[in-house]
Design a protein around this nucleic acid. Structure first.
Length: 596
RNA sequence: GGGGUCGUAGUUCAGUCCGGUUAGAACGCUGGCCUGUCACGCCAGAGGUCGCGAGUUCGAGUCUCGUCGGCCCCGCCA
């Protein structure tokens, strides 16, 4: 770079800099070589500025500019000037001006990049991930990471103002029995023992409350060794928080303040508070899911009582066996073709439905449907009344166990909305879901498992059901849902040893096992534990939604593929036998190529 | 663990259903011309292990089997 010192970035060159001399450094985004005159779009993290190489301004740099290619790294000293009349480019912020080059330095050359750095051009994700450093040069990727940074800053700003301490918790910790699979790390100095990477700092933040820290937060990496999805990575980032001396209301108020601050600071969007609240029961009844997308209607309606008496055997049998019949009114969608209905049926089946019954409402309110004849006129009328059905509507029925019907109709509702573009893309609809069940019965393991985690406090009024009817105990947990995606979850925690022991019992964790795995927590609860609660936000998901992306990979600098591999570094990789031996690990898989 | 989908030039894709000449297009790339472009333009050119392996066939990008990989989903994710 010699004595050249960068004076501006490629975004901040404006008419205020006219006739001044500036030094820009960045990458050659595009070159338009007219022979006698060469234009280069110079790109840096902030933006793009057009540089003109003209022989009458500087012969030498004009000569040199012929050799410039895409992604060369250059430094340009030049004079800012107004573009000639009619030659302005309103598409870029610096489009009124240009920099006439007086001196060009090529800081580094570049081979032709493996894919174009243009937003519109779709490039397969595997190529993007292999060359992630080039992918990240794309302006929209810079925007995503910049937004992520701003969101973190706004969070810190708000929490610092509200008297929170940012405290780090260990990455090497112990494996916990409940929950997801752990990533394990062998201990060299403790042969045969393993650390686990944290699935969340849950226990440490509760201990911090018992330590009297009162308000804690951390933007922290968490690890879960489970299969990946568009919104799930093996390592992800959480805004983790915990407070003492609060109840649900206190936390939800605080979080609404936090989210409002973040949206205002980063996107300039002013959200309305308080956010709507639904109980788990309401959410399941109306949307068939505990993370409802509330940007559109198409709510579920129960017609089990009507179906029980109708002439359709399948419905009767299901109801007799304790199942339910529920329905969705797809308003004005009776124009769906036979083929559409076949596709939707297949869709429903992929979520476990046996079939998908439907009814089109004709002009005279009569039914066009394979199942019409099984419903007496008064039953048809009753169904239509309950679903507010009108001519032109089509009703979809789900009949099965409650959980299957909820899943199928919940997904069908989303699919119908997507097909008919009923979802306002720019909206941010937050909703709190509260009063989750504390436990759910796991058929495979034949025991109750915690719906959130085993440290969630049961509702006071349900406490005595813990032993007699565990399934009916509600918890003091709350989830924050944004546009149908769970972005945060938390609860008031158990702060009394006796209650914690009762919950462990309900989970079939014996005293001995509880003592062995959570002894430190149980003991801490007897040594001055304040009432406390908290919440954790999926930062990746939140930023993804704010950036309008469809996968969290687009807001993570170096994400992994569905097979949990990093295509750039090629992790995970083989290690040497010597390295394994040092860790007292003896593999019993076949020695593969690459294993030394 | 399961279902779906894709894999052809540097990139994005067509060709595969129904096997048959030298595997095409666009963008990009290379060279030449061009003083107002901004998706610059014009002319010329280079560029392919059709993911990999086996099989069927006179003949395979195309059919069959296997395998590897990307993505989406179910299960799983306290």
């Amino acid at each position: 770079m010699g004595e050249l010192k960068r004076t501006h970035d490629c975004y901040s060159i404006t008419e205020e800099s006219l006739e001044t001399e500036v030094v820009l450094m960045g990458w050659v985004h595009r070159r338009r070589d007219h022979g006698g005159l060469i234009f280069v779009d110079l790109r840096d993290r902030k933006g793009i500025t057009q540089v003109v190489f003209a022989p009458e301004v500087d012969e030498k740099s004009h000569q040199k500019a012929h050799s410039l290619r895409s992604e060369y790294v250059i430094a340009v000293r030049g004079r800012v000037r107004r573009r000639p009349e009619g030659m302005e480019n309103p598409k870029i912020k610096t489009g009124m001006v240009e920099v006439a080059c007086l001196e060009l330095r090529i800081l580094n050359t570049s081979k032709t990049p493996p894919f174009p750095l243009e937003e519109e051009k779709e490039v397969s994700e595997s190529v993007r991930l292999k060359y992630r450093y080039i992918d990240l040069r794309k302006p929209h990727m810079v925007e995503n990471l910049t937004l992520r940074h701003s969101v973190c800053q706004a969070m810190r700003e708000f929490l610092n103002q509200h008297d929170f301490l940012e405290i780090e918790t260990p990455m090497l910790t112990r494996s916990t029995p409940e929950g997801a699979r752990d990533y394990l790390v062998p201990s060299r100095v403790n042969p045969g023992r393993f650390y686990a990477l944290p699935q969340s700092p849950q226990l440490f933040k509760q201990i911090l409350m018992i330590s009297g820290m009162e308000r804690y937060y951390q933007i922290v990496r968490c690890f879960r060794d489970e299969d990946l999805r568009a919104d799930r990575q093996p390592e992800f980032t959480q805004l983790d928080m915990e407070l003492s001396f609060v109840n649900e209301e206190g936390i939800m108020d605080l979080i609404e303040g936090l989210i409002t601050h973040v949206f205002s600071r980063t996107l300039g969007i002013e959200l309305n508070t308080p956010f709507p609240r639904l109980t788990y029961q309401e959410a399941m009844d109306r949307f068939g899911t505990d993370r409802p997308d509330t940007r559109f209607g198409l709510e579920l309606v129960d017609i089990t009582d009507i179906a029980a008496g109708c002439g359709l055997k399948v419905f009767n049998t299901i109801v007799e066996k304790g199942g339910v019949v529920r329905a969705v009114n797809a308003k004005g969608m009776a124009d769906l073709s036979r083929k559409d209905l076949d596709v939707l049926t297949e869709f429903a089946q992929s979520f476990g439905a046996k079939g998908l019954a439907w009814v089109k409402i004709k002009e005279d309110r009569s039914w066009q449907s394979p199942i019409a004849k099984f419903f007496k006129p008064e039953e048809q009328e009753a169904v239509m009344t309950r679903l507010s059905a009108a001519p032109g509507d089509i009703l979809f029925f789900g009949a099965d166990s409650r959980s299957t019907v909820d899943r199928v109709l919940g997904e069908l509702r989303l699919e119908l909305a997507r097909r008919r573009n009923l979802i306002p893309e720019k909206d941010f609809n937050f909703v709190w879901v509260t009063h989750f069940p504390l436990l759910e019965f796991d058929e495979d393991e034949g025991r109750f498992k915690a719906l959130h985690h085993p440290f969630t406090a049961p509702s006071r009024e349900d406490l005595d059901l813990l032993e007699e009817d565990p399934a009916r105990v509600r918890s003091r947990a709350y989830d924050l849902v944004l546009n149908g995606i769970e972005i945060g979850g938390g609860s008031i925690r158990i702060h009394q040893e006796a209650v914690q022991k009762r919950v462990f019992n309900a989970l079939n964790i014996g005293d001995e096992e509880a003592e062995e795995k959570f002894g430190f927590l149980l003991e801490a609860l007897t040594l001055g534990a304040p009432p406390h609660g908290g919440i954790a936000f999926g930062l990746d998901r939140l930023v993804m939604l704010m950036a309008g992306r469809e996968t969290i990979r687009d807001v993570i600098a170096f994400p992994k593929t569905q097979k949990a591999q990093c295509l750039m570094t090629r992790a995970p990789a083989h290690v040497s036998m010597a390295q394994l031996a040092e860790l007292y690990l003896r593999p019993d898989w076949k020695q593969e190529e690459g294993q030394t």
